[in-house]
Nucleic acid binder design. Structure first.
Lengths: 199, 199
DNA sequence: ACAAGAACTTTACACTGTGTAAAGTTGAAA
DNA sequence: TTTCAACTTTACACAGTGTAAAGTTCTTGT
């Protein structure tokens, strides 16, 4: 039988997660996480080589909990390209707020910390593949707007769906999550789906 | 006659600017700036209370040099709303790369430093007014797409034109500056300018 | 000519947070 | 009972920001 009390490593990851969710914005320090996990600060370094490493591992842990991959894969079952585009926006748009606290911490380091930058870029690269798949599906349906190449369209969709944009719209512009999802769908559809020709 | 050798304060601002432009990405420290300006590190604190303060003052200095306000005001002379929208995108889009180094430094602090956040928000608030004016001009022409309210449209345009988006498109997606400008114009026009009705 | 003061320099140090180092404790397995 | 892994405890190096205070230098007014 698998023990139900989590091992130290997992407890640290959970502590990091909780603190990040709680202390919105404020820096979460190694000492804070250690205290929350009921281990010594030094013990963190037995499991994670640096703070950056710990945060990166925490994102992986979170993805695991949330079942990120399965969810994103699900959007591939849609029939038409347009449906697929909408499904992807819905899925990703719903996922963002769940990972936002952590994303924010990583984003804050991205500009100065090489490793954090790399980790974040990789994640965004994965997300980009989802954008690409949706755009390709549109193109396959001959439903991609002639205004953009598939690559350009991917770039633009990727831009639209960035975490920073979600942050700006829901925080600075105080949009609700529903508004965000529906408006981005509308925006993406207007932009990428070719207008029906009454030829 | 006004002395042509700049006073210490100005020399510090110039040094900060140069270093930020040069050392793309890497942190610029107070000691670095002091060295470059040929003053002691302590002298910086005689002119600026904190590093954040210095960076903020540097942005103001830069705006001054670049004539930011005059340029942005110029876009207001356009006749139609659509022209105005394009003029604004052109002006702002051209301005971004000129302030990018500094913007980047401020953005990096924004997430943790209260004062930096405030200063940046204020700047972006100013930029938002330009977006709002362009959208209002469109609405006045009855040329605003019925898909969005003026406020929503402003929010979306503001989002589209964010520095982070410029960064993503030109750095990650390796778009040229020309491509950025022309694509964003096309994007904004498609999104906000009402389709001509053949009623 | 001299005092006063502004604008620095120099030296020293406090503080925060990350990360390293090494010796000591504890509990379980062999 | 020893041995080992997984910790704890204590100590410290290091970077970078910001404070403090005494010393220098140059200018200016009287």
């Amino acid at each position: 039988m698998t023990s139900n009390k989590p091992d130290t490593r997992t407890r640290i990851l959970q502590a990091a997660l909780e603190l990040l969710n709680l202390s919105q914005g404020k820096e979460v320090r190694m000492a804070d996480i250690a205290r929350k996990a009921n281990v010594s600060r030094q013990a963190l370094y037995l499991h994670f080589s640096t703070r950056t490493d710990l945060l990166i591992e925490t994102t992986l842990y979170l993805d695991d909990i949330k079942g990120a991959e399965e969810r994103l894969k699900a959007s591939r079952t849609a029939k038409t390209g347009a449906e697929r585009l909408n499904a992807f926006i819905e899925t990703w748009g719903t996922y963002i707020p769940e990972i936002y606290s952590l994303a924010r911490a990583l984003l804050a380091m991205k500009d100065t910390d090489e490793a954090a930058d790399k980790a974040w870029s990789q994640r965004m690269g994965d997300m980009r593949e989802g954008c690409e798949a949706a755009i390709n599906a549109l193109q396959h349906d001959k439903a991609l707007s002639p205004d953009y190449t598939a690559e350009q369209a991917t770039d633009i969709l990727w831009m639209m769906l960035s975490v920073r944009n979600w942050e700006q719209l829901t925080k600075d512009c105080t949009w609700t999550q529903e508004m965000y999802i529906s408006t981005l769908k509308s925006l993406a559809n207007n932009t990428f789906v070719a207008k029906e020709q009454t030829t």
